[in-house]
């Protein structure tokens, strides 16, 4: 923890955020701080508020109270497009590509108001070589994984400082998910900090440097993957009194601190990786 504060002020500083969806209170006083170079993961069950938090940070929701600071400035009232040009760029849940535009046009739109930086369309093509040949194709016909790559590319060409990733793994086969997350190191190398929301807890734990678990709009766990145990994560994920929730799991006795392996085939967790509507 001390290494965090030593590196100076957080790049993204969220304090006591309260967000409502109409009358429903989606977030109750959430705080988080993301420092440069981190991969900060938000985990939690469906409806916990993770995506709401990300969307509020991106500017698509107005918080009822609380503040969001970016690079020292208060951006709580800033319009979403201004945040994007300032360097907070989100890859939205469900990809949200522009269906009537081609792959390359999607990227070009992403770069319409880009900041100066290492990323451009050519570099995105280096990251995803398959795109070069299919740059003129409409994205509607592409596979889920390919669409997700385009969505990420569209965000990258804007040269963000903070990249927000909302539910990357949604609707994708595990192999594809792994491949996409495999790009993270190259993204981080270019100086981008990542804040992500992930349903798949094991995947999140694999890539995150820090994490926070949300349950019904409250923070139930905060820390690094190394610090937290499987039981802690389960308890945070489901709430108190669910200590025996993971009974059907067996954990290898030789790896006492291995993060819990969670996959969709286990009936207990099956509801987690297939979701239609996140928080």
């Amino acid at each position: 923890m001390s290494s965090r504060t030593a590196s100076g002020a957080p790049l993204l500083d969220v304090r006591d955020l309260v967000v409502h969806h109409g009358q429903l209170r989606a977030l109750s006083g959430i705080s988080l701080a993301v420092y440069p170079g981190e991969v900060y993961a938000l985990i939690g069950a469906n409806g916990a508020g993770k995506s709401t938090l990300l969307r509020t940070i991106a500017g698509l929701h107005h918080p009822t109270s609380g503040s969001i600071s970016y690079d020292g400035r208060d951006v709580t009232g800033l319009r979403p497009e201004k945040r994007a040009t300032a360097g907070i760029v989100m890859v939205p849940e469900g990809r949200r590509l522009f269906p009537t535009l081609s792959l390359e046009e999607n990227l070009k739109v992403g770069g319409s108001f880009a900041r100066k930086g290492p990323w451009d369309i050519e570099r995105v093509f280096e990251l995803f070589p398959w795109m070069k040949e299919r740059r003129g194709q409409k994205t509607a016909q592409m596979s889920g994984g390919e669409q997700q790559s385009v969505a990420i590319g569209r965000a990258l060409v804007a040269n963000p400082r903070v990249l927000l990733l909302d539910e990357l793994s949604l609707g994708l086969a595990p192999v594809i998910v792994q491949r996409i997350y495999g790009m993270l190191p190259q993204i981080l190398e270019s100086g981008i900090t990542v804040l992500l929301v992930e349903q798949d807890v094991s995947q999140a734990l694999r890539v995150a440097t820090h994490l926070q678990c949300l349950l019904e709009g409250h923070t139930t766990l905060e820390g690094t993957p190394a610090d937290v145990t499987r039981e802690q994560v389960e308890a945070a994920y489901f709430g108190a009194g669910s200590a025996d929730a993971g009974e059907e799991y067996s954990q290898s006795p030789t790896a006492p601190h291995t993060p819990p392996h969670i996959d969709g085939s286990n009936p207990l967790w099956s509801g987690l990786t297939t979701s239609s509507r996140a928080c």
């Binding site: 319009r79 979403p80 497009e81 994007a84 989100m90 522009f98 269906p99 535009l101 319409s112």
Partner: peptide, 22 residues
Amino acid sequence: KYGRLIRAVADDREAAQLSGAD
């Protein structure tokens, strides 16, 4: 650029905002 932006905004206003378009 603005022709593309018009088409993008027509497709998905929010996603266009996320790409920096007012």
